[in-house]
Design a protein around this nucleic acid. Sequence first.
RNA 1: CGCGGGGUGGAGCAGUCCGGUAGCUCGCGAGGCUCAUAACCUCGAGGUCCUAGGUUCAAAUCCUAGCCCCGCAA
Length: 327
Amino acid sequence: MRLVMMGTGPFAVPTFRKLYETDHTVVALVTGPLKDHRPGVAVGPMRDLAHEHLTPIFDPEDINSPESQVSLAAMEADLLVVCDYGQILSAAVLGTARLGGINLHASLLPKYRGAAPINWAIYHGETETGVSVIHMTPAVDAGPIIAQASTPIRPDETAVELEARLAEIGAWLMVRAIDTLQEGHVEAIPQDPAQASKAPRLKKSDGLIDWNRPAAAIRNHVRAMEPWPKTFTFWHRESGPPVRLILGPVSALPRTPKGVGPGTVVEAARDRLVVAAGEGAVLIQGVQPAGKRLLSTREFLNGHRVRPGDRFGPEQAPAMPLSIASR
RNA sequence: CGCGGGGUGGAGCAGUCCGGUAGCUCGCGAGGCUCAUAACCUCGAGGUCCUAGGUUCAAAUCCUAGCCCCGCAA
């Protein structure tokens, strides 16, 4: 079949690579426009792969514009293979290929529809997720499911690690789906809207830690927000403005410190930095101060006088120890 | 010219505004204490304060130019 690959981000790379190992023809790569044209800026693995195989690149600002549709139609594709592309395709665009488009989505649809399914799955403490290949419809991530595969989420797996695994599984699933499509007999299963949930694109503010949540939830938060926006909090000192800290790896400690409110530093010595959470406590194993690289807790504490009793929390509202009173 | 932070013994930082003896927490070395220790005590080594020029009696600190590193830009 004549395939048009549509993808931009790293999640699409394994799928794109695998297409070249099939008997199908990759007619073109459709990808996001280059943002920074300065020399020396990497153009990205998707473009590199296309160059390597002498595949033409099409990178319109707006894929749904009439001009873009004309260009797509001229490719006379059988199928649009879409993965981590970044733009929503109109019905007209989907119609430019004989069989329409299929999309690889990194969740067990209908759960976690949207741009950041991996991150939100980890954030919510899911122990299993997967990939789905759907037939594309104008409603985002809502088309009938052609193929699906699940995988467990390891307890300490970060979003980056999970994404890499799912991309590989997804590439394999995509190729299988394409082959079944070619054979013509596809039993696509409609999604149950009642089971649907949302996984919206991440915002920087999604990285702000809420120390009132249980320690285990904070740990999930930290591993979910990789590689962006990361999780951060503010260290409120006796003197000077609050310092923004990006958290490195953290562990959840089961014991809830007595007599202090969530966000209070309960230990700050050597290589141990422990902060009270709403339930349990969080052991911070690495810290990145604003404008600095990631420091081990030991390095950080050598240079910064964090003391037990200091508060971690949002930038505003020091939220003086609300409850010296014990629980 | 995208925005911002920074360059001070091996690590992380303070000192810079307001020029005047190189400081803190560690690490390293020697010794001591201890049944013992990542604990504690004593002593010690180790620094062109990024570079070049300028101002000055005197520059880590002020002025000018440059180099390099990092974070955020989704």
